[in-house]
């Protein structure tokens, strides 16, 4: 029996963002942009979606005079990611 996949995570860009944040405590927006190869606008939209779902926490701060956006995964995001990987296993028959 296939388990349903979280539609919010079942998207290349959002899954990539979550996977990057899972092994780091926090990451800055330019780093995620560089790693995913996404445009700033698209990335910003996906980050907002994940943030609205409570999967990540977005902190807007300043580094000197430059604005700096820091993203970190929340416990709810971690749980959703674990559930997503569990659900994937049923598709792969692991």
């Amino acid at each position: 029996m296939f388990q349903p996949l979280d539609p919010l995570l079942h998207s290349e860009l959002r899954l990539s963002i979550m996977s990057l944040l899972i092994s780091a405590e926090e990451a800055e927006f330019p780093y995620i942009k560089e790693q995913t190869g996404a445009t700033a606008g698209n990335l910003s939209v996906q980050v907002d979606k994940l943030s609205a779902a409570g999967y990540i926490e977005v902190e807007k701060t300043f580094k000197g005079k430059r604005p700096c956006t820091i993203c970190r995964i929340t416990p709810a995001g971690l749980k959703a990611f674990e559930d997503y990987v569990e659900a994937l296993k049923s598709y792969l028959k692991v």
Binding site: S16, S19, L20, I22, S23, A24, L88
Partner: peptide
């Protein structure tokens, strides 16, 4: 999906 997860975690 698994490939994306593996690649991203590895990169990070």
């Amino acid at each position: 999906s698994l490939e994306i997860i593996r690649e991203s975690i590895e990169k990070s």
